[in-house]
């Protein structure tokens, strides 16, 4: 992976150029909580303004679904923390998907996509929901044909990917490029880490100490994106076998990817099955032993840490400081014709 500078007006705030000192966190530990200046992108799909423009149109265009009713933004809505506020995704004709719509914030920094990590790049991920019968239910050959019939798109593809035409590949690349621009903005926590002691409340500071201390939340929710990309069974007790579906590897039974906690206040309900409505409940499930502590292949990290209601509240106060300013984003209202 090569690193590229970010483009576009939506890429605001949060870029850290200098690290200041803070009394609350050891200097050597601070770097990992700060967002990298650059967004990673693959060598064969560098980020350019033309690709962002094209990708944004495709992302918000309902014509990418079979019946022209659903776009990527239906389930990954910027107004709803780039998720949809539903327990489980709802696609065309009201069809319900098997899992909660994960936010796409900072997916650029994740190696594995989807709750079960079955896609190893955003390009690979981008075509999944388009084809899924419970999401956009669109045949890719038909989509290529449809877009080729739209003059405006032909021009945009030519500008973004000269000589490559409108293909499954360039559609995936363009959407992935737009997704790479959906990055978290500077949150109060970032200002605190950079040295502004007044950026977050005393309760939130206590919550952060619990998050990295007694709660050991950072065993998985680690680094600036508050996820280490690991897969765990939290013992929710539902029938979804998770990553195990990819291969019958024992440690993948009922295991799902650790989600980011950036903007987590905007992305309820929580977990892969959308069964948890509040951050208090989510913190209790993770921090106090899982809903079903005797679940097969329960992650050993899910144990009862004896967090009190007050401590859970403090952790949630801290989590609220991870909410950044809304990104400056102009959502298209007119699409290529």
């Amino acid at each position: 992976m090569k690193y590229f500078s970010r483009f576009g007006t939506i890429l605001t705030g949060g870029v850290v150029a200098a690290i200041l000192t803070t009394s609350a966190v050891a200097k050597e530990d601070m770097n990992k909580w700060l967002r990298p200046e650059n967004v990673p992108a693959p060598k064969d799909n560098q980020i350019t303004p033309e690709r962002i423009t094209l990708g944004k149109f495709l992302y918000f265009d309902t014509r990418l679904s079979r019946d022209n009713t659903v776009s990527c933004a239906t389930c990954h809505n910027p107004e709803l923390g780039w998720s949809d506020g539903q327990p489980k995704a709802i696609g065309i004709e009201g069809r319900q998907g098997p899992r909660n719509s994960p936010t796409i914030i900072n997916t650029a920094y994740q190696r594995h996509q989807f709750w079960d990590g079955r896609a190893k790049s955003l390009e690979e991920q981008a075509l999944g929901p388009i084809q899924a019968d419970v999401e956009m239910d669109m045949d890719l050959d038909e989509l290529v044909k449809r877009l080729n019939g739209i003059k405006g798109y032909k021009e945009l593809f030519e500008k973004a990917y000269p000589g490559e035409g409108i293909t499954k590949d360039t559609i995936a690349k363009a959407i992935a490029t737009f997704e790479r621009t959906v990055v978290s903005t500077e949150a109060p926590f970032d200002r605190y880490i950079k040295g502004d002691e007044n950026a977050i409340s005393e309760n939130a500071k206590k919550g952060f100490a619990l998050f990295t201390g007694k709660g050991k939340c950072n065993n998985c929710h680690d680094g600036f994106n508050f996820t280490d990309g690991s897969f765990h069974n939290l013992g929710l007790g539902d029938s979804d076998i998770g990553r195990y579906k990819l291969k019958k590897r024992a440690s993948w039974f009922h295991a799902f990817k650790t989600p980011t906690l950036r903007d987590v206040t905007k992305t309820a309900p929580y977990f892969h099955d959308g069964s948890i409505k509040t951050l208090e409940e989510a913190t209790a499930v993770c921090g106090n032993g899982g809903r079903f502590p005797n679940s097969k292949n329960l992650s050993p990290l899910i144990e009862d840490r004896g967090l009190t209601q007050e401590e859970i509240r403090l952790i949630v106060d801290f989590l609220a400081t991870l909410e950044g300013e809304p990104m400056k984003l102009e959502i298209p209202t007119k699409f290529p014709q």
């Binding site: 190696r111 594995h112 990590g117 280490d228 690991s230 897969f231 440690s251 992650s299």
Partner: peptide, 9 residues
């Protein structure tokens, strides 16, 4: 090629 099934990074 070796990977950790829990921590694929």
């Amino acid at each position: 090629e070796v990977e950790c099934a829990i921590h694929p990074n």
